[in-house]
């Protein structure tokens, strides 16, 4: 059995993190599992965790009245689920549902925020890892808005 420190340290999000910092954030971590169809969180709920997927697939969804929920992104092994935990007022902006059996690390948001606040160097380290994920999702969203597959395609 791997201990939680090992699991956290091996996750891509925290890979290469200094061991002192790793020990700090491990204090906020626990293992969780979600069965297929189970929700990690719902839109509007309190963003009390940051989830780091170890194995599995999670769909981010928006409920549409009168229609099935629309999924706009799936996340997989090594991905991070949920960024609202760091942005006041800490409410989830969408639903996250496990599609397959998903094992993840759940980081307690209060705990992690406090440690980041107490040690800005750790806070900066966490932000540096979070920001590329946010921007790549922003780029993906831009492409989705463009609806490129409705546009001309080569050659006819």
């Amino acid at each position: 059995m791997k201990d939680i420190a090992q699991i956290v340290g091996e996750h891509p999000f925290f890979q290469g993190l200094e061991s002192d910092f790793c020990n700090l954030v491990c204090g906020c971590a626990r293992n969780v599992r979600f069965n297929p169809g189970e929700y990690l969180f719902h839109e509007g709920g309190d963003a009390n965790h940051m989830f780091l997927i170890r194995y599995g697939q999670v769909a981010l969804e928006v409920a549409v009245p009168g229609k099935p929920a629309v999924s706009f992104q799936t996340l997989h092994d090594g991905d991070l689920v949920g960024v609202s935990w760091i942005l006041p007022p800490y409410h989830w902006a969408y639903d996250a549902r496990a599609i397959t059996l998903t094992r993840a690390i759940a980081m307690d948001a209060h705990c992690l925020r406090k440690k980041c606040d107490d040690d800005p160097v750790l806070g900066y380290e966490v932000l540096k890892r979070l920001l590329p994920i946010l921007t790549s999702r922003l780029h993906a969203t831009q492409m989705q808005i463009l609806d490129v597959y409705g546009a001309p395609e080569p050659p006819e």
């Binding site: 769909a59 629309v70 999924s71 599609i99 597959y149």
Partner: peptide, 8 residues
């Protein structure tokens, strides 16, 4: 780009 919940 997007799908409903039937899509695995």
């Amino acid at each position: 780009d997007h799908a409903d919940s039937d899509w695995q």
